[in-house]
Amino acid sequence: MVKRKKLSAMVLAIVAVFILNACAEQSDVKVLRIAHGLDVNHPVHEAMVYMQKRLQFYSNGNMDLLIYPSGQLGSERENLELLQIGSLSMTKVSASSLEAFVPEMKMFSVPYLFSSPAHFWNVLQGDIGKELLNAGVPYYFMGLGYYDAGSRSFYTTKKPVYQPDDLEGMKIRVMNSQSAVNMVNTMGGSATPVSWGELYTALQQGVVDGAENNPPSFYLSKHYEVAKYYLLDEHTSIPDVLVFSTNVWDQLSNTEQAWVRKAAADSVEKQKVLWQASTELALSEVKKAGVEVVKADKSQFVSKTASLREQYQDTKIGLLIDRVVAEDASASDTKGDE
């Protein structure tokens, strides 16, 4: 019954998009469609609105972008499937959601891989980041850029967490990612995949004892209403990826593709600024609401999760991790020479 309901929802979404496509064909304006599962007040949605304006500007009104927020066309996985068959032009997915197609994306789920925000963005905007964006082409999607999703930290309902041992016996919600499951279990918790849309109720009813996410998501989801303890341990920095259907892309002219790339690049830079402001606001507001926010002593968490990096030794992902670490060392050497 559950599978049938999910299938029906998927079919309805596809039908709705096809109807909209048919209507759009009656206009001279080429309309692209983008969907995501976040709130309209989220920095990602605001960045997409900005992308729409920039696309209209670059194309002189010949192209437009329609945005479907708040999961209107389904989950990240369902949006990606719509993308693959060409019924949707763009979507935003967590890098973790791409692990099934691009195993190298598991790199982002390795705790404490990046030494600083500068290291993180140097990797994303360099050769490694570009390689990962193109790795989905065999699966009918390509990356246009990365959105900042901050760092993920633990929040809990019944008791605070200050060190890994405090997670012992606690059911912690994670994304449907084996890497995320392994991380929480390694720290001592009991990883429990729950869909994002069901998490508030799961926290409220005690189905799970906590979760892990970035400050804006913690705040905008209103999870702070039921989870009053937030430990800023910042265990992983997993970016969002702006992906485009190759089926749709191949139907665009070179000029249209250039407009889309420029609008997406502008959106990425805008989102960084919006994200920083949203993070500061989120932390301020949850504190006002009575949430205990504590910065973690990360050393214990780093030690506890060291094995998660070691397991990738002598693998493709391990070689990629080595390149990430080397890039940080290279940047430090260059800075020291200045």
Rank of each mutant, 00 (worst) to 15 (best):
residue 232 L to M: 09
residue 66 L to T: 14
residue 57 F to H: 11
residue 328 D to I: 09
residue 153 S to C: 00
residue 91 T to Y: 00
residue 203 L to T: 11
residue 45 H to P: 04
residue 287 K to C: 06
residue 64 D to F: 00
residue 6 K to D: 12
residue 54 R to D: 13
residue 197 G to C: 09
residue 22 A to F: 14
residue 104 E to H: 02
residue 289 A to D: 10
residue 318 G to I: 03
residue 109 S to I: 12
residue 24 A to E: 13
residue 311 Q to M: 12
residue 161 V to Y: 04
residue 29 V to P: 08
residue 176 N to T: 06
residue 72 Q to N: 14
residue 173 R to P: 04
residue 253 S to A: 13
residue 275 W to K: 09
residue 265 A to I: 01
residue 122 N to K: 06
residue 112 Y to N: 07
residue 115 S to Q: 11
residue 162 Y to S: 12
residue 253 S to C: 12
residue 268 V to C: 03
residue 231 L to N: 06
residue 146 Y to P: 07
residue 209 D to I: 07
residue 107 M to P: 09
residue 288 K to A: 12
residue 319 L to I: 08
residue 303 S to A: 15
residue 69 P to D: 14
residue 194 V to T: 05
residue 252 L to I: 08
residue 305 T to K: 04
residue 33 R to D: 00
residue 315 T to V: 01
residue 71 G to S: 10
residue 330 S to N: 15
residue 269 E to D: 15
residue 58 Y to W: 03
residue 233 D to Q: 15
residue 148 D to E: 10
residue 3 K to E: 10
residue 44 V to T: 13
residue 199 L to S: 04
residue 190 S to I: 15
residue 313 Q to M: 09
residue 233 D to N: 15
residue 31 V to C: 00
residue 59 S to T: 05
residue 260 V to Y: 05
residue 225 E to M: 06
residue 323 R to Y: 01
